[in-house]
């Protein structure tokens, strides 16, 4: 995806960055910041990541900003008044649709993570989640460059086809025309290039194992 000068929606893709202040509170002997971190560290990875279930996510990242980085001498001693949960995502489509999909597909996880942030108690459904996110959104200009602006299913299908077609070439390069045509028909029937639903790569796939199980 090309760099966007702002986080405003383009025709096909969107880059969202948010910073959510974490309350300076604690539960038992654990600070809210640590609880947010634990909730994030408990996310499963790759295809099992909750973000893999959110439609059209190209790349998403969570992290915690404990404090501003001290930039050495000469300096001023600035500190944040609280830690911040940072969430950055690049996706296909428009913001409201994306956040609705996110809320529908991972609202338990969303509440697990965000419950420790200021103002999140007002979030009860997708609409209030969208309103909250827009309040904590920041304008940024650098995004993940590694995809075009197609929908995620289209991109996953393309990656799958590229991988399968490479295998096809290796396997059939010295065959006769007839043999090649037959093999291609078999390839076409098996990979269904026009069908986005599958077979295709799975969202969140972190390795080539099991990527094409639809």
């Amino acid at each position: 995806m090309p760099n966007r000068s702002t986080s405003k929606n383009s025709e096909r893709a969107y880059g969202l960055s948010i910073y959510c202040p974490i309350k300076n509170e604690h539960e038992g002997d654990v600070s809210f910041t640590s609880l947010v971190r634990t909730a994030l560290q408990d996310f499963k990875e790759d295809e099992d990541s909750p973000m893999a279930k959110v439609p059209n996510t190209y790349l998403a990242r969570f992290f915690i900003v404990d404090d501003v980085i001290f930039e050495s001498f000469p300096h001023t001693n600035d500190h944040l008044q609280s830690a911040y949960l940072a969430f950055s995502t690049n996706f296909h489509g428009n913001l409201d649709e994306y956040l609705t999909g996110m809320y529908e597909n991972m609202n338990t996880k969303i509440h697990n993570v965000w419950q420790y942030c200021y103002g999140f108690e007002k979030v009860k459904d997708a609409a209030s989640f969208i309103a909250y996110i827009k309040k904590v959104q920041v304008e940024t200009s650098y995004f993940f460059v590694g995809s075009n602006d197609d929908s995620l299913p289209e991109q996953l299908k393309s990656l799958y086809l590229k991988q399968e077609f490479s295998k096809f070439v290796f396997a059939n390069q010295s065959k006769s025309d007839d043999e090649l045509l037959a093999a291609y028909k078999e390839f076409d029937a098996r990979t269904k290039p026009a069908v986005l639903e599958g077979p295709t790569w799975r969202a969140g796939a972190g390795s080539l194992k099991n990527v094409n199980k639809g």
């Binding site: 910073y19 202040p21 300076n24 600070s31 910041t33 640590s34 900003v65 404990d66 501003v68 001023t76 001693n77 600035d78 500190h79 944040l80 008044q81 830690a83 911040y84």
Partner: peptide, 11 residues
Amino acid sequence: MSTKRETKLDL
């Protein structure tokens, strides 16, 4: 994000 000068640690 707002900042201030006092060091605050996560005790």
